[in-house]
Amino acid sequence: MADPNLAVLIFLLVLLTQVVAWIGKSVLQDVAAAAYGRVFLGSLDKEQRRLRKQVLEDKAELGRTSSQDQFAKWAKLRRKVDKGLADLEKTNAKLSAARSTFTSRFSTLIWLSTTGAQFALMWWYRAQPVFWLPEGWVPGPVGWFLRFPSAPRGG
């Protein structure tokens, strides 16, 4: 006799797979990445915004300064802008690496919870029938093929 828990487990797994397919892996990934970014990368985001604002202010001041008349001030501002851009680039690289790592791990999690779980379920319950057909409903070779590789006869 088929296990009713197996049928519920199959139903829930198929439901999860269909919900993921309906919503879309990329949408789920974007939502999860945004939540992850707010929770775990908030300090890097703040640092990035602060550096971007500072670089823009310094560039505006550099544009207002004459390189010929106020060379010392202009050179100091130029070095400050260059340092700010380098720091901003480092912060952007850190954020990008963290988001890329999260994306690959989340994608793996989605695969494991849908496709990987289906494979595991099929392997674990490979000898247990999901439903039974009465003897004689399916001719010999077709019945053998349907129960292949290890289900009992009629299952």
Rank of each mutant, 00 (worst) to 15 (best):
G63R: 09
R78S: 15
V39C: 12
D30R: 14
I23W: 06
K46M: 05
S43P: 08
L6S: 01
G42S: 08
D82V: 13
G37C: 07
L62T: 06
R64K: 15
P139T: 01
P141A: 11
G84T: 12
G42K: 00
L88R: 08
V20W: 00
A151D: 14
V14S: 04
P141S: 10
Q54A: 12
V81A: 06
T17R: 02
T101N: 13
Q128W: 01
T103R: 11
L15D: 03
G155K: 00
V27W: 01
A60G: 10
D82H: 14
G24N: 04
L44V: 09
S107Q: 08
L13Q: 00
R64N: 04
L51D: 04
T103D: 15
W123N: 00
A120I: 00
M122P: 02
W111A: 14
L15T: 00
A75M: 05
L13D: 00
R147T: 14
K53N: 11
L28V: 00
A97E: 05
E89R: 14
T65K: 09
P134H: 14
G155I: 01
S66I: 05
N5T: 07
G42T: 02
S104N: 08
G116W: 02
V142A: 09
L51A: 02
L41C: 05
P149M: 04
G155A: 04
R78E: 09
S67M: 12
A7F: 07
L41D: 04
R49E: 10
Q68L: 14
A127L: 11
W111Y: 14
L16N: 02
P4K: 03
E47I: 06
N92A: 14
W22M: 02
V142D: 03
L15R: 01
V81S: 08
D58R: 10
S100W: 02
S67G: 08
T114K: 00
L51I: 02
K80C: 03
E135I: 08
A93W: 06
W144D: 13
S43R: 11
W132T: 04
D87Q: 13
T114L: 01
L85H: 15
Q29P: 10
L41P: 04
F102G: 07
I23C: 09
W144Q: 15
T91P: 07
S67Y: 11
A98L: 06
G140E: 14
L44Q: 15
L85K: 15
S67A: 12
G63H: 08
F11C: 10
S26I: 07
S43Q: 09
R147Q: 13
Y36D: 03
Q70E: 09
R153D: 11
A98Q: 13
A151M: 14
Y125I: 05
T17S: 01
E47K: 11
W144A: 11
T114N: 01
F131K: 11
D69C: 01
G136C: 05
V55T: 07
L12H: 05
L112F: 15
W74T: 06
